[in-house]
Design a protein around this nucleic acid. Structure first.
Lengths: 213, 213
DNA sequence: GATACAATACCCACTAAGGGTGAATTTGTC
DNA sequence: GACAAATTCACCCTTAGTGGGTATTGTATC
């Protein structure tokens, strides 16, 4: 019987290695590769297929949510289990909407992770208890979109949110991007509406969590 | 010969387990415990001494910097190696000032971590290349304190910075803490001066990084 | 009792950000 | 070519935050 081929996508070395070591102990599993961001994962998948991906949401270069969308498009058969420390509802919702089969929080126990893997491999959804609780409590960032559709940011909006998180004022951002201050304000307003936050604080948290800064 | 007793303090399960598994393979080392935050660590140290602590900066309940200060006071003989994903200068500086012997970034390789451990156990300081680079570039948050003294926040300032990160306005914070809006502004000013940031964005990043939200 | 600091509160002036509305232009896709 | 989406820009007005002070009280610590 073929072993389940697993790839781990996590920028944090001890975390990625910890997952690898844990899974290598399981007879039916084989970790074929460990990558540090979404781009590396997609490059690898081009000619190295696998059955299961364990993926962190917060990764540099290309984060988990964007990566998830590409995987669903390019490799629909791959099962993805999110393995992250982020338990905010917007990430859970985003990952599930984009097609992740499960959402496991890193505060959980190893045995629970193995259980989660078995469950998603069987085709069932898995959510960590705390994640399930967040989902039950309702949607914070996504309340304006009850359909559950993913709220994507445009490239320009990402430019702006990054600079906001870097403590730049609207004027400075305008100079940096060679656009008018009014345009920066436009993007800022779109960002706040999309992410359903009330102030710059919410934008900064979003950018920090996703490791965009 | 006695084995080196090691405790790992890291709230992230795969990360903590990854470190534990890595160290258990080394003949001279023994991981006596794994804890999830600074408070658990200090409780454990009361009657379970150890030689080396690997500690993450970002931990819930009690973060690495506060924990470091207590360790230096209560258990001066224990060698602490910071093992974190945070590479901002203020954390590096804070941990070193508080008495950590080394600062290892989780993006580094396992062999490098073992090398770092050997180095701090010999009594030498260790810094990850990227961390060394940050130090060379100068101090961002701590530029106003060239002596390198740790910039500590008072309990009230922590209340305020947390609420700022939670997107509360000054008025809301005032009501929540039962103080006047002017007092909130006073705390806000102190925070920005102490942390040497220009706007709320810097405060939010600080709070998010330290997992205070 | 003197010192230091945290916490509280107030003043003033100025700048930045938030919220609403509308619209032109480019870009890519069907 | 029609359509949707992204990007750009311009007004309006209101509120919130920033930066500079100063000052009082309480509470440790020396």
């Amino acid at each position: 019987m073929e072993k389940v081929k697993i790839i781990i996508a996590d920028a944090s070395m001890p975390s990625a290695n910890g997952l690898r070591d844990l899974l290598q102990k399981v007879p039916g599993y084989t970790v074929v590769s460990v990558v540090g961001n979404g781009k590396e994962l997609l490059d690898l998948l081009k000619d190295h297929p696998c059955d299961l991906v364990l993926m962190e949401v917060g990764m540099p270069v290309m984060d988990g949510i964007d990566t998830m969308r590409s995987i669903r498009e390019l490799h629909p058969a791959i099962v993805v289990l999110t393995v992250t420390k982020l338990n905010a509802i917007e990430y859970i919702n985003s990952m599930l909407v984009e097609g992740a089969k499960g959402y496991f929080l890193k505060s959980g126990r190893s045995e629970e992770l193995l259980h989660a893997i078995q469950q998603v491999l069987r085709g069932e959804q898995y959510l960590s208890p705390a994640a399930q609780e967040s989902v039950d409590k309702g949607y914070a960032y996504t309340s304006k979109d009850p359909s559950g559709a993913y709220v994507g940011l445009t490239p320009r909006e990402r430019d702006v949110i990054r600079l906001i998180a870097l403590e730049r004022t609207n004027d400075e951002i305008a100079v940096h991007l060679s656009i008018s201050t009014d345009t920066v304000k436009s993007h800022r307003k779109s960002l706040m509406t999309k992410l359903n936050v009330r102030s710059a604080a919410g934008l900064v948290k979003y950018a920090v969590d996703r490791e965009w800064i």
